[in-house]
């Protein structure tokens, strides 16, 4: 079975075991990423996201199974593939003694066909000073340099491992703009992340990976149509919760003084009637974020992702996305 030209990435029963006798980092992964899509690859730390990316780039080899990138076998045609992709590793290390400009020139010369005008545009967009030595850059600035290196040759396929980690909220917005630009130009983005709000803001589809196994692949749009909302009601006086608690579809009801917050599914009229006796100062509804949607979709099996090492970061992004 070969990947068609409409498929940017396809894996066939891809399994990777680093140490014999230990659980595999990837187990029989069958993944398909169509061309032109922004595809989120989600999972907690240690789920196998980076392992998948390293196999795609031919940095490591599958134990069994295989992968195709842009219609070519990831091992046999690795050089051809790398001509047409841009890559940002999760942990970006570069030559500390070189300036960003020297790094870009070196990598650009290795790649060939780099539009230096576009490099300038990117550095301006990212507000990045190219003249400093790599060792003097902050984590966020190194990330910007990594993004320039990944994007500078306008690749057909972008493989980005945790692209926004270390970027401030403003730069995250610029990153989203750059991804939109890539989408408009018909390029494919394969983006790994443990931050749900990030993929929610950018991606067309998401795959969930857990302990090396593919748990689910869903369209972000489809997921977001899950029929529930968060309702926040602020009243002039505190209200009794009994009435609301018995309304069908109301769950996770909490009260903080005059503010009541709950999850709601179904028609709104029963809620309206339950609140009829109260003087409502403010009423807000919020769509659930992807994390909450996945929790509803997959229940407890999705829980480890929230409890992962970077759960705090996820929360921050959630706040930023709001």
């Amino acid at each position: 079975m070969a990947t068609t030209m409409n498929t940017a990435i396809q894996t066939f029963q891809l399994t990777k075991t680093y140490t014999p006798g230990k659980p595999p980092a990837l187990t029989s992964l069958d993944l398909t990423v169509p061309c032109g899509e922004i595809f989120g690859y989600l999972g907690p730390n240690g789920a196998g996201k980076t392992t998948t990316i390293k196999v795609l780039l031919d940095l490591i080899r599958p134990s069994t199974g295989r992968a195709e990138v842009l219609g070519m076998d990831s091992r046999e045609h690795s050089v051809e593939i790398r001509k047409r992709i841009g890559f940002l590793p999760g942990e970006l290390n570069l030559w500390a003694g070189l300036t960003a400009q020297q790094v870009i020139h070196y990598m650009g010369n290795l790649r060939g066909g780099v539009d230096w005008g576009y490099v300038k545009t990117l550095s301006e967009k990212l507000d990045f000073d190219l003249s400093k030595k790599v060792r003097s850059y902050s984590t966020g600035n190194k990330r910007k340099l990594g993004l320039i290196l990944a994007l500078m040759h306008k690749p057909e396929l972008l493989i980005l491992d945790e692209p926004t980690s270390g970027l401030d909220p403003l730069m995250q917005q610029i990153f989203i703009t750059l991804m939109d630009e890539a989408r408009r130009e018909g390029r494919t983005v394969f983006l790994s992340s443990h931050v749900l709000s990030e993929v929610q803001a950018i991606c067309d589809r998401v795959a969930i990976l857990r302990k090396g196994k593919l748990e689910a692949v869903e369209r972000v749009h489809d997921l977001m149509t899950v029929n529930f909302n968060w309702i926040t009601v602020r009243t002039r006086e505190p209200i009794a919760l009994e009435g609301l608690a018995h309304v069908p579809g109301v769950a996770e009801l909490t009260q903080d003084g005059t503010t009541v917050r709950f999850r709601h599914t179904g028609d709104f009229d029963p809620v309206y009637r339950a609140l009829a006796s109260a003087y409502i100062v403010e009423l807000r509804t919020e769509e659930p974020n992807l994390e909450e949607v996945f929790l509803k979709f997959y229940g407890s099996q999705f829980a480890p992702m929230r409890n992962g090492k970077n759960g705090g970061s996820s929360h921050n992004h959630k706040e930023a996305a709001k």
């Binding site: 390293k54 780039l57 940095l59 050089v79 051809e80 790398r82 001509k83 992709i85 841009g86 890559f87 590793p89 942990e91 970006l92 290390n93 570069l94 030559w95 990598m107 290795l110 790649r111 060939g112 990594g146 290196l149």
Partner: peptide, 14 residues
């Protein structure tokens, strides 16, 4: 050891 090869070999360099 510095972890630079990932980036370097993402270029089309055999």
């Amino acid at each position: 050891e510095a972890g630079i090869l990932d980036v370097l070999l993402s270029a089309p360099l055999p």
